[in-house]
């Protein structure tokens, strides 16, 4: 028996919007720790890892570990039927092939349930090693989204370089080149507007902008984004989900031939 009640139902809608461009089908894993997912895109270039901790739910019952295969577009179709202020409850019985999403309006005058068929999904679960990153950049998520969008109109790839001067995003395409440098800036009115660069040593890596743009679909989940870089490792782009957990994207770099 599984029953997860999330008062801030709109959060689940945002989580789906943040993943469905990248991943079609995925297994949602439910355990005492929380509601989680790990999935790669079809070309195995990017990986998304989601964790919504059990403490973040108003009610969390998960009698035994359960893995539920869902098509994210179908799940999104169902969640779109929930009002933005609705409370969403996810329910499933052991051994059944469906999941139920229950939507309650804030004043309890409308209750809907949508039952969705589950799928069998063969997915590889990867072990993500703990790593020391050479550079960690924290910046406003909207700023990062703007940079990725702007640069993708010029080129297909971005070189992200961190030096003590700041973080530089560079691209080149048929029409020309572009460089955007963000310097560390802690002297802002609000902490979420700061750009903070923790650098152990300079690092420079190349990534496909198409994937980074997909990651920025998570912008509504968090005011800030953390970008962790090390040479010879996938970049980690993390959006913290307040009081609940995170959505992390890993993107394999482009390597000189």
């Amino acid at each position: 028996m599984l029953e997860l009640r999330l008062v801030q139902g709109s959060l689940l809608k945002k989580v789906l919007d943040a993943m469905r461009e990248l991943v079609n089908d995925a297994n949602f894993d439910c355990s005492a720790t929380g509601f989680s997912l790990q999935a790669m895109d079809s070309s195995h270039v990017a990986l998304v890892a989601l964790l919504l901790r059990s403490e973040g739910f108003e009610h969390y019952r998960c009698d035994r570990n359960l893995s539920m295969g869902m098509n994210l577009n179908n799940m999104s179709k169902m969640l779109r039927c929930a009002g933005n202020d609705d409370i969403i409850t996810i329910k499933a019985d052991d051994g059944t092939d469906s999941v139920t999403f229950m939507f309650e309006s804030p004043n309890q005058d409308k209750i809907a349930d949508f039952e969705m068929k589950l799928m069998d999904i063969d997915s590889e679960h990867l072990g993500i090693p703990d790593a020391e990153y050479q550079a960690i950049v924290r910046m406003p998520s909207s700023e990062f989204a703007r940079i990725c969008k702007d640069l993708s109109s010029i080129g297909d790839t971005v070189v992200i370089s961190v030096t003590k001067e700041g973080v530089k995003f560079s691209t080149a395409g048929d029409i020309g080149t572009a460089n955007i440098v963000c310097r560390q800036n802690k002297t802002v009115d609000k902490p979420e507007e700061a750009t903070i660069i923790e650098m152990q040593e300079p690092v420079s890596l190349t990534f496909a902008l198409r994937y980074l743009n997909s990651f920025t679909k998570a912008t509504p989940l968090s005011d800030t984004v953390t970008i962790s870089l090390s040479s010879e490792l996938p970049v980690v782009v993390e959006y913290k989900i307040a009081e609940m957990g995170y959505i992390r994207y890993y993107l394999a770099p482009k390597i000189e031939e």
Binding site: M40, V45, L126, A208, L233, Y250, P253, K254
Partner: peptide
Amino acid sequence: GGKQSTITAFFGQF
């Protein structure tokens, strides 16, 4: 822009 690597080249299967 170089050759695109894959996630599975970095992270081992569980």
